[in-house]
Amino acid sequence: MAWFLRKNRNITTEQQLREMPDGLWTKCPECATIIYRKELEENAYTCPKCDSHFRIGSSKYVDVLIDHGTWVETDRQVRSADPLEFIDTRPYKARLKEAYSRTDLPDAVTTGTGAVHGVPIAFGCMNFGFIGGSMGSVVGEKFVRAGRRALDQKMPFVFISASGGARMQEAALSLMQMAKTSAFLSELGEAGLPYISILTDPTTGGVSASYAMLGDVIIAEPKALIGFAGPRVIEQTIRRKLPEGFQRSEFLLEHGFVDLVTHRKELKKQIATLLTHLMSGKS
């Protein structure tokens, strides 16, 4: 999460606008091209004209990446509690309730198993539309459970991040999910199973400073915002504007913090090829 100032955190209107609408025609927010739904689906929810990657949630990523008919969702019943009875301008419970009804999602992460071009994997994907993809106890627990399935069934683990960071309403418990998920990845690593981390727009704060940056291979989608502190916080710290493209995927590639920047249309094939390489010693 952004540690000092992130004013946009709970502006749902912006998130709603940027999420994929379900209509027949969609206007690209970058170049204003009108795109027919079928074409958008075939393009893995990227603009055919300007390559802009739309923010999509877990169900669409399952469509894009997982072989048809192989997807089994797991642990949907794991839900956020309100252990601290957190109230700011609104109670946390009310925020959760609204998020459930608005998104029909179980929390900021969806997990399960499936196959990628025939390679079975344990899979997790974050939902930015659910309270900014924030990581609380549920995200940490489901990450570990999904990863443990990979461990038990000797499968690779693939995880897509999209998050503003740790969920403030669970305070120190959210912070500890960074420790919990990273501790699990040390265990998975000892078993020699690959963990591929995919970074999408945005991946910041506590998520970037834990499991997102710990992939054996780290793939970023083009132009995704990836960093520890949010851009506004940094601008306040250094008192000047940030350069164009700062903290974007291509910037991280240049600075050596991601392995690849991959267009969403190529993602599935690339994951499958990577996994075939990485799992070759196992058979």
Binding site: A179, S186, G189, I234
Partner: peptide
């Protein structure tokens, strides 16, 4: 939360410590 800290991978540096300290 500075520009150079981001350039040099603040998130990665913290993440790697969390993993190492777990093993």
């Amino acid at each position: 939360p500075g520009l150079e800290a981001e350039e040099r991978g603040q998130a990665e540096a913290i993440a790697r410590n969390l993993k190492l300290m777990s093993q």
